[in-house]
Design a protein around this nucleic acid. Structure first.
Lengths: 346, 346
DNA sequence: ATTCCACTTGTTAACGTTTTCATCGAAGGG
DNA sequence: CCCTTCGATGAAAACGTTAACAAGTGGAAT
């Protein structure tokens, strides 16, 4: 391994000069700088990250904790994080808890020790009840905790839009297939649905669950959804919606005719399945990017006030939602939303 | 931050004893050991990774480089890597090149500097032509390079099984939608298909492409596949197969009646789409685990000989493949494979 | 001409850990 | 009873880097 000492020897200067030439080129004479840089290049010098981290008290790495990397939603968040981190020269540790709260706490503990900050995506564990985090810089994604900075899609707006869409199609009995009890988004959406229901007394909302936020969870919910008598279902995310839809179809019902189905996140799954899935869309890559920005800022200024960044979210209508077949459809009370996605106000 | 020094002070011993008590409990007297451990626990001591790394000359971290984290295949590999790495106490840096060879080399360069070893998944760049890797321990996944250790699915067996399956259904003109030119798996499969074709002169194989290994790539290939006159298509991976299938259906053809489609990797997409996709299956999580094992071993013993680990792979038949409709179907020359997956010999 | 300041470079301590070497005491064999 | 040996512990060096401080040079201002 070639160190700063080797470069110093080759360039005929002291190690301090090499360090300066690399970190702050203006603080060293032009001729010396060129000589040092040339030597470093010739020898193929790479700074030792451990030494640098030890000295500076930071690692130049951040941690990303997700509940399920095979869920397209988190994969896309990870991509956004990866992009932004790379442009800032910090590395990303990725940990996948596989939906296991205990593993999540374990992984988080490990991450805290070797990163400058942590990105917590949709945590399933009750982070507040553990002291794992301490004063470690952290940013939550799809979760708000005390005064910590957070980034989330404004899926309250999305949930409301979805519900209004189903209502305007004529649905009156609508099921919501809930996700993990610790999900912040889930709680917010349930509140939003409740609020809409209160505005429209004719609506009947069945909150079902919790179910695992997976294809299997959606399959498992199918029977209960059908038994509830709902003519439309809103699922915790696309993965659940797809599982639900597949199972409902396997049971001999038709989507959307016998049951309309809508999801959240608008992952690429929506256009792959038949019928194409109506879903609440948001810019998920941007969620990852913004969260990374917030974290890097928090690392710089640990005492900055936490803020909640809400990114816009809106409904994208596809083929899995339609007017209910089994009852007389009243005239829509509002004109149907346009087929093209329309950005909502954040 | 609480250091070994603080623990030493609290326990009334020297820092060397603390270090020993933590690393090698048998080399210190029982009473002292208990006192040290209690002090460490009370103070909440966590070893400083950077210092440890600097001293030991290793980072206890490995790098994982993938071309596309949103591809379920790589997400599952990442999961396997993550599992195994966690059980060995090493952290995983994940880098997503987003199918860009230049980014791949860049990311790899960054990874090499701060890890003990690197896992290269289906590299798109010509790694051999760069000196990025140097003597850094590396394991290839779905790629074989010189004497480096590698793990891959034996998709030669899978490709042969798929082709034989299509042939036994009566297909005579079969398209292969190829992936990136630098893909090792792709080259191996093409050779395998060629070999089968030589055994069966009646078969006509159209190798089309290269196409991007994405849904879009599959869509883009649809027209060419149809124009080729093939009655069945084998796609580079499930994602491509799904894109192809969607587009073919959108063009008014029926799958499998007008065109049979099969993919590789058997990701969870296969059962979500309609019709369910016939695909070549392998234990992808295990690929990630084995690759990690190989890498950790290589880090311990850098001069060990490289080996190529091939994991078994077999065809899973679903609804996207059927006898061709448009021509007289000759009697199958072999009995059709069973509907349940049958493990192939590695 | 003297003083002072800006600029450039070198010396050295420090980050937290592991490990080598030395030291000390006790136990055991002659 | 002395010498050896071994077990337990401490002191200190080293890993590669950065930054605080020191020191040297030159020129400009007085």
């Amino acid at each position: 391994m070639v160190t700063i000492k080797d470069v110093a020897g080759a360039a005929g200067v002291s190690i301090a000069t090499v360090s300066r030439a690399l970190a702050d080129p203006d603080r060293v004479a032009a001729a010396t700088r060129d000589r040092v840089l040339a030597a470093a290049d010739a020898l193929g010098y790479t700074p030792n990250r451990a030494a640098r981290g030890l000295r500076a008290g930071r690692t130049n790495a951040i941690g990303l904790l997700v509940p399920d990397l095979t869920n397209p939603y988190f994969a896309v968040v990870a991509r956004g994080v990866s992009q932004r981190a790379r442009s800032h020269g910090v590395a990303v540790f990725v940990a996948d808890s596989e939906e296991d709260p205990a593993a999540e706490v374990d992984l988080l503990r490990g991450l805290v020790g070797q990163t400058d900050g942590v990105l917590l995506c949709s945590p399933r564990a009750l982070i507040r009840d553990t002291d794992v985090l301490g004063a470690h810089p952290a940013v939550f994604v799809n979760h708000a905790l005390d005064a910590a900075p957070s980034v989330a899609l404004d899926d309250v707006a999305g949930a409301v839009a979805a519900l209004e869409h189903l209502r305007s199609l004529g649905h009156r009995s609508i099921a919501y297939v809930a996700g993990p009890t610790t999900s912040w988004s889930d709680a917010r959406r349930r509140d939003a649905l409740q609020a809409v229901a209160e505005r429209h007394p004719e609506l009947e909302i069945h909150v079902l669950g919790p179910y695992p936020p997976t294809v299997e969870g959606g399959s498992a919910a199918a029977g209960v959804v059908i038994a509830s008598g709902a003519t439309a279902a809103l699922a915790f995310n696309d993965t659940v919606a797809v599982g639900l839809m597949r199972r409902v179809i396997a049971l001999g019902l038709r989507v959307p005719h016998d049951l309309s189905v809508a999801g959240f996140d608008d992952t690429y799954l929506t256009t792959l399945v038949t019928p194409a899935l109506t879903s609440v869309h948001g810019d998920v890559t941007e969620v990852g990017r913004r969260a990374t920005d917030l974290l890097l800022d928090r690392i710089e200024r640990p005492d900055a006030p936490g803020e909640l960044v809400l990114l816009p979210s809106w409904l994208v209508q596809r083929d899995s939602t339609a007017p209910p077949l089994s009852r007389l459809v009243p005239a829509p009370t509002t004109s149907p939303a346009p087929a093209e996605p329309t950005p909502g106000a954040p």
